[in-house]
Design a protein around this nucleic acid. Structure first.
Lengths: 257, 257
DNA sequence: TATTGACGCTCACGCAACGTGAGGGACTAT
DNA sequence: ATAGTCCCTCACGTTGCGTGAGCGTCAATA
């Protein structure tokens, strides 16, 4: 029948003395008894309860709820745990997403190798253009790049204001698609068609040549396979690259009939 | 040159008006200018800065640091991000662990199918014993179960108090090992030998027969491959099953020379 | 017995990041 | 002019304690 003082409890449980005081104040964990010297003394039961408290605290449950749970007729525990599991796994996913976000941010900050967004569409450099062409040649052989070759002169001849306008158009389209993704609109949904039609027109304008369905579909591939595009779209919204590409392919098939 | 009021900024950015007031108070985000009516007006630059702030806030960075980072000469950003990534991925892992902990807790609360800890070692049921045997037969063929067959009568004949004592012994051993794991003692470290020697003796007692090194090593396998054992040890400390098994194998090799 | 540490107690303020009124001007439209 | 909607500035409340300040208690020693 050994009674422990605050310091001893603090040592074995790892919490601070202040925390014990606090838990006493709010009625979450009262000492087994209090000496006439006003010292707090804790027994075995209190230690066990403290363990439970700490366990639940780890799970992010507010102290008030912990008290309610522990004092409940042991019935709601499962329910509480399930709810907690839900919240936790969401948190876990959130953190995982954040880590990926950071990774992308770091990558785009540290590498000049990672293209800046503006570069990607605004003034596509000749080297980059060559790279994209080579990329597609590698994937499809020599006949493809012709179909999606960029309109170099055209882009070069745009004024700043015109380029600005184009960028804003693109931004609108991308935001619309990202919204669709966030709202769970399925990949090939016809409700996305207006956005995709705008997207195709945008490409036709920028590249200064028609973009038939097959070319559009092969572009989809570029979007999921080339790091620059993936990076751009993943940065806008996780999963957007895949989503966009998938939607593009369905769309291409739909309009080609 | 459109200036936005607090409400408008709040709407497009998703934060509350009070938050904008707060950020102004602490100097994190000042309005572009203030009217003579004391209204706050925000411009494009402020919106962009707010985006940055929110991004960093998502990452769990305290507002003070965010201010410092955003106002720094763009140099420490990478460093800050890396540190943040570290913290975040730890949090992510922590939450993932917690989810697993909850799952185990739920399983052990809701299922009678999930064996209670006590059962696992206290009064090992004949069916369970058969199951373990079958398990090992499946893994090693027919010669192994003989070596680790349980001493049925012995366990059945123990008094409550004796069983209690055994459980406490086991608990001590397990806690010692868990401590080693937490403190980062490497798996096969000789400093673990005393615990493992106790562990082996415990098994010899419970099973009422000698446990030669080979048998001990094959037990290690059972610990990582059978759900009951994995569950038990993972519940004590995440990673303990693997850790214990690894240590057992090294220990078995060490004593067999 | 007196004194010294180490330990205990009770206020009570402080922190982060806002939420939530209260009380009172400012702007817009009818 | 009046209503309705915006905006402002205090200023206190929240959560889970940290961190003293100022003062009693206890065990052991000089």
């Amino acid at each position: 029948m050994k009674a422990l003082t605050v310091k001893q409890v603090a040592k074995v449980s790892g919490v601070s003395i202040r925390t014990l005081h606090h838990y006493d104040e709010i009625g979450l964990l009262k000492p087994a008894y209090t000496g006439r010297n006003r010292y707090r003394y804790y027994g075995r039961d209190e230690l066990l309860r403290l363990q439970q408290i700490l366990l639940h605290r780890e799970l992010g449950i507010p102290l008030g709820e912990i008290g309610a749970i522990l004092d409940a007729p042991g019935f709601d525990r499962l329910e509480a745990l399930r709810g907690q599991r839900q919240r936790l796994s969401e948190e876990a996913r959130r953190y995982a997403r954040l880590v990926r976000t950071i990774d992308r941010t770091i990558a785009s900050l540290e590498g000049e190798r990672a293209m800046k967004n503006a570069d990607l569409y605004k003034g596509i450099s000749p080297e980059k253009q060559a790279e994209y062409e080579a990329w597609l040649v590698e994937k499809y052989g020599g006949d493809m790049p012709d179909r999606i070759a960029l309109g170099k002169e055209k882009i070069g001849s745009l004024t700043e204001a015109e380029q600005q306008k184009r960028m804003e158009d693109l931004h609108d389209i991308e935001q619309g698609l990202a919204e669709g993704l966030r709202r769970g609109v399925p990949m090939g949904s016809p409700s996305l068609d207006p956005q995709l039609a705008r997207h195709r027109k945008w490409i036709e304008f920028m590249w200064d040549r028609p973009c038939p369905p097959e070319a559009y579909a092969s572009l989809a591939d570029l979007y999921t396979s080339h790091p620059d595009f993936v990076a751009r779209y993943e940065a806008i919204e996780p999963g957007l690259a895949e989503y966009l590409a998938g939607s593009m392919m369905v769309y291409a098939r739909r309009i080609s009939t």
